Amino acid sequence: MTITITTFERSPDGGKGLARDMRVRWALEEVGQPYGIRLVSFSAMKEPAHLGFHPFGQIPTYEEGDLALFETGAIILHIGERHAGLLPKDAKSRARAITWMFAAVNTVEPPILELVTAKILEADKPWSKERLPLVQDRIRNRLDQLSARLGNADWLDGPFSAGDLMMVHVLLRLRPSGILGEFPNLSAYVARGEARPAYKRAFAAQLAINDPSHDVGG
């Protein structure tokens, strides 16, 4: 059965790899599974046809036969459980990799998303200037902890896993802020993720959709 994922018709970041379909693309590339895409506009995401796949009107979704999934963590866990390459065979190592997947989206990502909100959606609020340093400090606190745990290792727990895939993509959102650059070992960790051939293929595929020469109606 063909796998189909939904992605932005035009990504807000212009195809720089920050949209969440990038995580699913990368995971599928890592396990060598082909997939198709269905482009969705911002207005179409809120219409009944898409809400049937994603009740919160977001992307990506994952469709395979009569199976429809949403939430990148759930999608990547499903991919990792069905195909070799993202989750270790050893039960304890596998459990730890899944733990890191949850840590990426539940512990590290929330303050990073808060920074995006503070800089873009709340920039015109009278209290914005006072709040921004507090948000940045919360991020630095999380990165201090993550940096200490990673140390000089290449990956979070032995070989590369779905936990690293999720964490690298979460950290990528910080690069424009300059905060990631304050942590050399985390910057190098992200660079190792970006250097993986599967990441490069996924990035190129997402970028191609956002190329001005790409005809979204074709």
Rank of each mutant, 00 (worst) to 15 (best):
F8D: 05
F8M: 06
F8A: 10
E9D: 10
R10K: 05
D13M: 07
G14T: 04
G15Q: 10
K16P: 09
K16V: 14
G17R: 02
G17K: 03
G17Y: 08
G17E: 06
G17D: 13
G17W: 02
L18C: 04
L18R: 10
L18M: 06
A19H: 01
D21W: 08
D21V: 12
M22T: 09
R23P: 13
R23I: 08
V24K: 05
R25H: 13
W26P: 03
A27V: 13
L28P: 13
E30V: 07
G32L: 15
G32R: 08
G32A: 09
G32W: 13
Q33F: 10
Q33K: 10
P34W: 15
P34N: 12
Y35I: 09
Y35N: 11
G36P: 12
G36M: 14
G36C: 05
I37F: 03
I37V: 15
I37N: 10
R38W: 02
R38L: 14
L39K: 04
L39A: 09
L39C: 08
V40C: 11
S41M: 05
F42R: 11
F42D: 13
S43C: 00
S43R: 12
A44K: 01
A44Y: 00
K46L: 11
K46I: 05
E47Q: 15
E47D: 12
E47V: 01
H50L: 00
H50E: 00
L51H: 07
L51I: 07
L51C: 06
F53K: 14
H54G: 03
H54W: 00
H54R: 07
P55G: 05
F56V: 09
F56K: 10
F56Q: 03
F56D: 00
F56E: 02
F56I: 04
G57S: 10
Q58C: 12
I59P: 10
P60H: 05
P60M: 10
P60V: 08
Y62S: 08
Y62R: 14
E63A: 12
E63D: 06
E64R: 15
D66S: 13
D66T: 05
L67R: 11
L67F: 09
L67H: 01
L67A: 07
L67I: 14
A68Q: 14
A68G: 06
A68W: 06
L69N: 08
L69D: 11
F70Y: 12
F70N: 15
F70E: 00
E71K: 07
T72F: 02
T72M: 11
T72L: 01
G73F: 03
G73T: 03
I75W: 03
I75H: 02
I75V: 02
I75N: 00
I75S: 00
I75Y: 08
I76E: 07
L77P: 03
H78Y: 09
I79Q: 01
I79M: 01
I79H: 01
I79W: 06
